[in-house]
Design a binder for these strands. Structure first.
Lengths: 204, 204
DNA sequence: CCTTTTATTGACCGAATCGGTTGATGGAAT
DNA sequence: ATTCCATCAACCGATTCGGTCAATAAAAGG
């Protein structure tokens, strides 16, 4: 795989993006190396030259995305932020940073999570079991719910935000990185609106 | 296709659900009749017996879903409902009714909408151009925005609800019809919470 | 300039799968 | 007993699969 890493970053990214997109939307079995090569504008033989087998490529992408997210969390996450909406905004910023680097990362990882092809299933489980670590790290414990109005059911607010985040990350039309900033602005407006109306006291 | 309609409804539904699910998540080209047959628990030859070709099956499903949604809209939609959240709830109820009948309908239609396979693209466009009719019918014109607090940006609320609806309809984990009622209850709770906090006056 | 190494690919491999057909089988209706 | 029809395993030629390899183009080194 040194072969691949000797490529200029730009060419690496093109191939990675093509592969993430293909695997992410078609799953392991239904994605062919020809698809990926064509989308990346190179020959099929080159893909096998960089990564020995389809399986190798798949798991390379898996670990690559995993590290991408892990490092982004380690860089940005701050558990001293206890305000509910600030925490939500923070984890959204993490997602956005990941998407900006490789737009198909999250849809790929989601597809990996649901993959059940015999050839790769076991290898996924091994790594995937650590998902909960992060879920707990980002999770909402130690959060300050006291600023909410007394009659607001925070559980419902959580569910609402999960839906929004899903629609945000898996839109029916694929995300263009160019649109990301606009969409983000809308999302932050959203957070402001909810905070202003669900908290006891107006925020500045 | 009389062959197919002579089947008991239950067996028709099994095949339709299998086909919607397969086409919806893998697209036209990457979906094989063997996949569908296996998922429906019948032999590949039977599928070709009911529907002469793969293309015929695809467009049968397309028109089937189209009619399903059209009739559900005609049954339930009521443009005399001018309250914002009631209208949202109404269109959600329509979606839920459709999903209860065939869980993969919406994901299938969404996939059809983005399909660009040469063999079926043209046939899709012909019908799909009428999508806007319905979008306008369900749309929010004639809506009463006056009950919102003055400082609430209704455009943002709309965007928020669109995201929620997307996460609601295309969840990362596939929808089980059994869960639907619970999820709906949460969604309606959500609407109540938003209405109570974004309207000038509390609703009963 | 020539040589050696490396990047890149078109053509190819056997195996699998594709959309679609067909002949055989078995059960229900006449 | 016979007709009819639903059902499917086996099969068809064509395509595509994951993967290899020999040949070429390009770059590097002398």
């Amino acid at each position: 795989m040194e072969k691949f890493h000797n490529l200029p970053q730009e060419k690496q990214d093109i191939l990675i993006d093509a592969a993430l997109e293909a695997f992410g939307s078609n799953g392991y079995k239904k994605t062919s190396i020809s698809d990926i090569a064509a989308a990346a504008g190179i020959s099929k033989a080159m893909v096998f030259h960089y990564f020995r087998t389809k399986k190798d490529l798949y798991f390379y992408l898996f670990h690559y995305c995993w590290d991408l997210i892990t490092s982004e969390i380690n860089n940005q996450f701050d558990n001293s932020v206890t305000d509910f909406f600030e925490r939500i905004t923070l984890s959204t910023e993490i997602k956005v940073a990941v998407i900006k680097r490789h737009p198909a990362t999250l849809s790929f990882l989601n597809s990996v999570y649901h993959e059940n092809n015999e050839e790769v299933k076991d290898g996924i489980k091994a790594q995937m079991s650590r998902t909960d670590e992060f879920r707990n790290k980002i999770a909402m414990d130690g959060m300050d719910y006291s600023k909410f109005k007394d009659d607001v059911d925070v559980g419902i607010v959580m569910k609402m935000l999960v839906w929004m985040a899903e629609g945000f990350v898996n839109p029916s039309k694929p995300l263009q990185p160019a649109d990301l900033d606009d969409i983000c602005k809308d999302f932050y407006e959203c957070m402001k609106l909810l905070r202003n109306n669900l908290y006891k006291e107006q925020y500045l």
